[in-house]
């Protein structure tokens, strides 16, 4: 992939990426603290992070929310949608703000999306609306959690 070659991450980039996924410092001058940790200035940290954001390596620095911890409810849905209807159906599904991920996958069920709603009632309502699209449908809520990411070592 040429894309990865063009990225040219330097050691500082790598250090920062590995550091700020799990241990972003929560203090008044977080980028100064990061700089202190790896021996560069606050301004340099900010420059590196801006570039990494521009090229898409960093999507955002912020809270990764836990639907359940917020009192909400979530599930995974698999749907069997005929190929000629995929675009239309996907765009209707994605219109819901509560849909956080949506992928095309091979196999009998081809559209796979996760829904995170503010309450069980809201989730239930959404599921009924999506069921009304009329396609075969699996509702697959989590019953046990073994691992939730995600730190990518670079």
């Amino acid at each position: 992939m040429t894309m990865t070659q063009e990225l040219e991450l330097d050691d500082t980039d790598r250090q920062l990426i590995n550091l700020i996924q799990l241990d972003f410092p929560l203090d008044l001058r977080p980028f100064r603290t990061l700089g202190d940790q790896i021996g560069i200035s606050e301004a340099e940290v900010i420059d590196h992070l801006k570039r990494l954001t521009d090229i898409g390596v960093i999507r955002r620095i912020g809270p990764i929310l836990n639907t359940k911890g917020l009192g909400g409810a979530s599930t995974l849905v698999a749907m069997r949608v005929p190929e000629d209807a995929i675009d239309r159906v996907v765009s209707r599904i994605n219109d819901f703000d509560e849909v956080s991920h949506n992928y095309l996958r091979p196999g009998a069920y081809n559209i796979w999306f996760t829904v995170s709603a503010s309450s069980k009632e809201r989730l239930h309502k959404m599921i009924s609306e999506i069921k009304a699209f009329g396609y075969p449908f699996l509702e697959l809520p989590v019953t046990r959690l073994f691992k939730i990411g995600v730190k990518f070592e670079v």
Partner: peptide, 13 residues
């Protein structure tokens, strides 16, 4: 909040 930190665009990596 599960964690406060960076979300990585792993595809770009």
């Amino acid at each position: 909040i599960r964690r406060f930190g960076a979300s990585i665009g792993h595809r770009v990596l």
